[in-house]
Design a protein around this nucleic acid. Sequence first.
DNA 1: CCTTAGCACTCTCCCGTCGTGAGTGCTAAG
DNA 2: CTTAGCACTCACGACGGGAGAGTGCTAAGG
Lengths: 356, 356
Amino acid sequence: MTSSQPPRQLSPRDREILRDVIVAYILSAEPVSSRSVSKQGRLGLSAATIRNVMADLEEWGYLAQPHTSAGRVPTRAAYHLFIESLMQARRLPARERRYIDESLQSSPADAGQIMESATKLLSELSHQVGIVVTPALGETVLKAIDFLPLSGRRVLCVVVSGDGFVDNKVIESEEELPREELVRIGNYLTENFAGATLREIRARLLALMAEERAQMDQLLARSIELARAGLSLEQRQGVLLDGTREVLNQPELADIGRVRRLFETFADKARLVALLSQCLRGNGVRVVIGDDSALTSELDFSLVATGYGVGERPLGALAIFGPSRMEYERVIPLVDYLGERLSRALAESFAGEART
Amino acid sequence: MTSSQPPRQLSPRDREILRDVIVAYILSAEPVSSRSVSKQGRLGLSAATIRNVMADLEEWGYLAQPHTSAGRVPTRAAYHLFIESLMQARRLPARERRYIDESLQSSPADAGQIMESATKLLSELSHQVGIVVTPALGETVLKAIDFLPLSGRRVLCVVVSGDGFVDNKVIESEEELPREELVRIGNYLTENFAGATLREIRARLLALMAEERAQMDQLLARSIELARAGLSLEQRQGVLLDGTREVLNQPELADIGRVRRLFETFADKARLVALLSQCLRGNGVRVVIGDDSALTSELDFSLVATGYGVGERPLGALAIFGPSRMEYERVIPLVDYLGERLSRALAESFAGEART
DNA sequence: CCTTAGCACTCTCCCGTCGTGAGTGCTAAG
DNA sequence: CTTAGCACTCACGACGGGAGAGTGCTAAGG
């Protein structure tokens, strides 16, 4: 019935008006009237003219009215068009770039801390929720492994990945081992397996076990035992979230039902990871709006995401999550820049000396 | 004008009625009418009689009416009385005790993971927000310290506390050190300083430096350098929170203003720590209701808290945070039991073999 | 043919009114 | 001291009308 006319090439003026409507709506969060667009004066057209165009735009499916006598609101299609060709993605202001750089390379830090900083930066600079998916440890390359005696047969296993991630885990050995022995085991494993992914290492250990079952010396036997326990880090890709508090001030969250659904969305980390993982490959920023995905559907929320990684190897993803009515002009460059910088920071922490 | 009569000893019947009102309110979250108390039939009194008593209780300051023609609602004083002498703190059901025990001593874990489990248990079993304050690392006793080479001059410092807490930190040494040297340094420091608190160690290192400035050998010099960097862990007492989602379902959070204030409260971790730290000393559960404290004032929220620690040494605090209308009969035993079990779990992780 | 002024129309939103029902306080009888 | 009865109060929801914002349409003007 509505939107009969299939969307076609918009005239430049239509585009200008659509753009103005979207920008106004992003600022005000309220339906935009023809009059307000006209009064803004950028185009020198009367409200009536604007009105005609807006009626067209509604027919093409770019605008919608909450009710007859209200202004108009952009649709998902409008946001997509806006992002693709209407907005001018201004570069991130120098101040913010500097701020990001400083925050990211402040004092020596492990990759985990860098991730936390990144999450905080995302939310701080966008006033939305910042999300970072940390790498799945199984895919990560071993740099060093080390064991420390705790009490009794308990041993602390410290794993350092090539990208600077550190994880530790308490394991229980079959017999009590003295510190020196643990050091030897650590050395042995580090020397033999550094550079392989944890997944590969596990496979090689199994092969070793099968092969030399008879003639294994004690060091090897113990090494295998401890390594299997210590490297069985769950595949947990972590999800870091920050800025939930900021986003509560958004007018779209004036209704508590929505707040609840939002938090349920956050609670379901698995789904978050699944969605964001799709943004891993392919460089550049991806934007998921409204019910492009079940995740953001009912909330009218959007996700601006990109991947990060070292070299060609994708490691994880980062994103901003907020109302569809979002300052894409600011937020997209932010995600873009931060993704790049995060990758750089990890590469440095990997390469060591590559500091600028 | 109101509450003219100073509160005196309540008659047994008054107490029974007050108790019923509180219990009913805790369940329903709605003002309790005389009729509903009467109909419940536990006392066999008519609504009118109940009404008289309730009028008295209001005068003594135990009940309040939101408006003239509404039922009555307990005041802070009522909750305090309830907790002290009206309620029967039933023991935690065996099922829940078992669940806690299992969750807390599942597979070898470091103290940090235990803390996380505890936080989750608190919120899960109470449907409120669970809070755990982790120990200030400065007060903690060193068990072992270890260094791992990263890239270049970067070194990963792993500190294990006597209570099973593990922390790592990336530091930068003055010169690049090989793995063996780092192991030697770690051994040296562990042997000489295990058992002292980090604070003491820092003091002793300073003394050492001053004293032997001239004749320091290289090992000592390097040890001092690395230890100073590695042990300068910020005094950060962590705050773990869980269950924010659950608490959103409470009817008291139907208003978003409150939700916001709640999250602001959570964001101000420093104040949370300060308040909870008061619950460290003195064993037993402490309850802070409504505006006994600025923190919970406007929200009409309460805090049920207790401390945990190993032996005589208090380490941190744990608490449940939720609407004043809270199932104290369930929640207080829960906090009590969990505090005890958490202390036990840490003691075991310390003592090593003390497992049941 | 495009633009614009004018105007009627349609909604939502805001208020004030009113009826209803829950709950109370008081009084008088048991 | 308890309880039934009754009048009173007050929040809540429904109803209704007026105001204002915004639209769509039409007809005049460049």
